[in-house]
Each structure stands twice: as structure tokens, then as C-alpha cells.
């Protein structure tokens, strides 16, 4: 698979390390509350496991070491969008 890096252009997916769903950006922030254990459980262990377009985190380990959000179809492996994770994170109202 070729990942079209927003800064570096087309790169072989072998240069990257895969983490998982983009939901992993959205780490619960209520860790001081008792109720947070359920939120952390959902965050850490439960997955949508989508068959279709999946937004996922890839780390460019053998390149510029940036985190990317790749939109990839899990049935066909076709990649339709690649963004910098820091942009996505900011758009979610989080820090970079």
C-alpha cells in the first residue's frame, strides 16, 4: 500500500507503524473522576472494527516521525484521504 503523506508525498506503507482507530486520539480527560474507569475501558479496549472506510493512525517511523490519520477502506485497502494527525486533533478541540 502507498500512503500519500501530506508533506512528503507517496510513501510505502512499510515505512510506517500502525496503531489503530483514530478514536485513540480522543483519550478521556476526566481521569480524576471515579466514573472515568468506564470511559478509559471503552477507550482502551472497545473498537468499532469497521468494515468500510476506517480512519486510522499511522506513525511515519522511518520518515519524518509524524503521526498521520489515514482514511482507508478495510474491505478493499483503498486509501482515500491522508491528514496530519495534529490537524485532526486540533479540529477535535484537543491540543496537538
Amino acid at each position: 500500500m502507498i500512503i500519500n503523506h501530506p508533506l512528503l508525498g507517496p510513501r510505502d506503507s512499510e515505512e510506517f507503524v500502525y496503531l489503530g482507530s483514530t478514536d485513540l486520539i480522543d483519550r478521556p480527560t476526566n481521569w480524576e473522576e471515579d466514573a472515568s474507569s468506564e470511559d478509559f475501558y471503552q477507550y482502551q479496549y472497545i473498537r468499532d472494527n469497521i468494515a468500510g472506510n476506517h480512519r486510522e493512525l499511522w506513525y511515519h517511523e522511518q520518515g519524518d516521525q509524524s503521526w498521520l490519520v489515514v482514511t482507508r477502506n478495510t474491505i478493499t485497502h483503498e486509501i482515500t484521504n491522508v491528514e496530519l494527525a495534529q490537524d485532526v486533533s486540533r479540529a477535535m478541540g484537543r491540543g496537538k
Binding site: 489503530g20 479496549y45 472497545i46 473498537r47 468499532d48 472494527n49 469497521i50 468494515a51 478495510t74
Partner: peptide, 15 residues
């Protein structure tokens, strides 16, 4: 994942 999603259940599983 995709079968249990039809029952509204999410799992600690990735395919």
C-alpha cells in the same frame, strides 16, 4: 465485529 454490530454490540476485537 460486523455481525455483532447488527445487534448493537461493540467488542474488544479488531479484524
Amino acid at each position: 465485529g460486523r455481525v455483532m454490530a447488527k445487534a448493537g454490540i461493540k467488542l474488544p476485537i479488531e479484524s
